[in-house]
């Protein structure tokens, strides 16, 4: 009953039973110290294991650094996804396509207008905010109470449309954006690209910004109120549909920032975003769906799992380990490592 799609999305539906899915009631329920410690202990164990298997400290160190930095990128991309899920309970399948769209916008801004890649943020973020708001206002708002697959299909359709429009406009040739002054730096024997470090910092800044918006502004308070109870919010005079529009816009803006940061070190092609789609879902579930700070930690965990898993099980796709961890977490703690049972 609880997973009969409409029931879990219809706010007026009576709470079905005591073990209803741990739908996050708040956009913020930060990681508890204990779970953080346990996670840390597991990461340390995995590192030691990976170090023993690979037999080289340098290799292990490189993996840890790469894992953390890649994890930061995963967090970046998952941020918008988790925000949208937390408030709207929509699994936005177009998230990856929106990342790709932002990459192409960055490319257009850099090659067409001669901007510095990070200055392109001034274009991509507002543009994607408008796009996201428009999508929510026209396509998704009318079906907010429909079963889960209806919204899912709309976002899948959106993803297909965006990716193939990009294909039509920019063609299939992979493009790239050069970050001026980007070079590898050596850090305790591990080599790292500066652009990835910037992206990592970008992820931290974005989390902080989102947290501030959600907690220190009136709009943010309204968003959190709608996430907790759309009915109650309506009663106190919040325009719920407008908040939905703003939230989706905010999610799209976060995704735009992610796309711009990522574009400086990945090849830009229409499917470049959906590569991250899978990982982003894992990050969102690990961090607790709708939990913005959780997404940051979830991203780091996934980045590390991927790198260490690649060392422990050589020859297998590193993502495989990520999915195994994902399924285990899903079954053991469905509300995410950092979510709390309601």
């Amino acid at each position: 009953m609880a997973q009969s799609p409409a029931a879990s999305l219809t706010p007026s539906a009576p709470a079905p039973n005591a073990e209803a899915p741990a739908r996050p009631k708040r956009t913020y329920n930060g990681p508890s110290p204990r779970t953080l410690l346990v996670t840390l202990a597991m990461v340390v164990t995995a590192s030691v294991l990976a170090g023993v298997v690979s037999g080289s400290v340098t290799v292990l160190f490189q993996a840890l650094i790469t894992g953390l930095l890649t994890g930061g990128i995963y967090s970046l991309i998952a941020m918008g996804l988790t925000l949208v899920y937390g408030v709207l309970h929509i699994i936005n399948f177009a998230n990856g396509a929106m990342v790709a769209l932002s990459m192409f916008l960055t490319y257009a801004a850099v090659s067409g207008l001669g901007l510095h890649p990070y200055m392109a943020l001034l274009i991509t973020v507002p543009a994607m905010f408008v796009l996201g708001a428009a999508v929510q206002g026209t396509l998704l708002n009318p079906i907010m109470k429909a079963p889960i697959h209806t919204q899912l299909l709309v976002t899948i359709g959106l993803a297909l449309a965006i990716e193939n429009l990009l294909l039509m406009i920019f063609g299939p040739t992979p493009l790239s954006v050069e970050l001026p002054g980007d070079h590898g730096v050596s850090f305790l024997g591990a080599s790292v690209d500066l652009s990835r470090i910037y992206a990592f910092i970008g992820a931290l800044v974005l989390v902080a910004l989102l947290w501030l918006v959600l907690h220190k502004t009136r709009i943010g308070t309204a968003i959190r109120s709608v996430a907790a109870s759309p009915e109650g919010s309506r009663l106190v005079g919040i325009d719920v549909k407008l908040i939905y529009v703003l939230t989706f816009g905010l999610g799209a803006a976060a995704t735009a920032a992610a796309g711009t940061f990522v574009s400086t070190f990945t090849t830009i092609e229409p499917t470049a975003g959906s590569v991250f789609n899978l990982t982003a879902f894992v990050v969102v579930v690990l961090g607790g769906m709708g939990n913005v700070p959780g997404a940051l930690v979830g991203g780091l965990v996934v980045g590390l799992t991927e790198q260490l898993g690649g060392l422990i099980f050589p020859g297998q796709s590193p993502l495989l380990t990520v999915f195994v961890v994902f399924l285990i977490v899903l079954f053991a703690k469905p509300q995410g490592i950092f979510g709390r049972a309601s």
């Binding site: 609880a2 997973q3 209803a20 899915p21 699994i91 899978l278 999915f323 399924l327 899903l330 469905p334």
Partner: peptide, 26 residues
């Protein structure tokens, strides 16, 4: 058994298919 429901259930089936794809690819 572990009461994975709704969107979480959907994502677990998604992850299962992805795992199989990655397993076959490796």
């Amino acid at each position: 058994r572990y009461k994975v429901k709704g969107a979480y259930y959907a994502l677990s089936t998604f992850a299962f298919a992805e795992m199989l794809r990655l397993f076959v690819m490796g």
